[in-house]
């Protein structure tokens, strides 16, 4: 009974927070509601006997990644980013229709295939030792690969952002409004050139 109460509370918190993530209009509130959603899922991990994962999720996401997102939001706001207008109802309706139909498709496939009676009655009870053996002994090459991926991600982030040449100079863009606003008087001049003198 208590298990069900805890599950439904955490699930409600998570779903409400994720609705806030996609619907609020201020990026800071979006990031903070994502933090709340991660807290809810971390609580669910505790129910699923994955205490280490829950705690590392809180440390990594709430501690590091959300602060990273907030840094970027603050950088953008200090360099002149303005919130845009509201989303049109057409796009909202399209998004909700596509999302619900997609979710219903996945749900109908998965829930028809998977019966709860196929699984063992009691869930697994793991210790941290099992997880550590699985990571550092059975799948150690995956761990090395993950290190390489993180290194490449770090190098890529540095290369993309720490650019010595301003991007404005390297990008070749067409400025359509300037082309359209040119009038004939600005650009063309008719001159009578006398013979032997040329244009001064």
């Amino acid at each position: 009974m208590i298990e069900q109460i805890v599950f439904y509370t955490l699930a409600t918190i998570t779903v409400l927070a994720s609705i806030c993530v996609i619907s609020l209009n201020n990026p800071i509130y979006n990031v903070l509601s994502l933090v709340v959603a991660f807290f809810g899922v971390a609580g669910l991990y505790f129910m699923l006997n994955a205490q280490f994962l829950g705690l590392s999720m809180i440390i990594i996401y709430v501690g590091a990644v959300s602060v990273f997102f907030l840094f970027v939001v603050m950088t953008l706001e200090s360099s002149g980013y303005k919130h845009e207008e509201k989303i049109s109802w057409k796009k909202k309706a399209l998004g909700i229709f596509l999302g619900t139909s997609f979710g219903a498709e996945i749900a109908s496939i998965i829930l028809l295939k998977i019966n709860a009676s196929d699984f063992p009655k009691e869930g697994g009870s793991f210790t941290l030792k099992d997880l550590a053996l699985s990571i550092f002994h059975d799948h150690v090459y995956l761990l090395e690969l993950m290190g390489i991926i993180l290194l490449v991600a770090m190098l890529g982030a540095i290369l993309i952002t720490a650019n010595k040449i301003p991007i404005q100079q390297t990008l070749k863009k067409q400025k359509a409004h300037q082309q359209n606003e040119r009038s004939r008087e600005d650009s063309v001049k008719i001159v009578k050139v006398e013979f032997g003198k040329g244009i001064k």
Partner: peptide, 14 residues
């Protein structure tokens, strides 16, 4: 599944 669909909706509308 609900979380996944909410993510998909967010990518489409935002």
């Amino acid at each position: 599944i609900i979380l996944f669909s909410l993510g998909v909706v967010g990518v489409i509308i935002n």
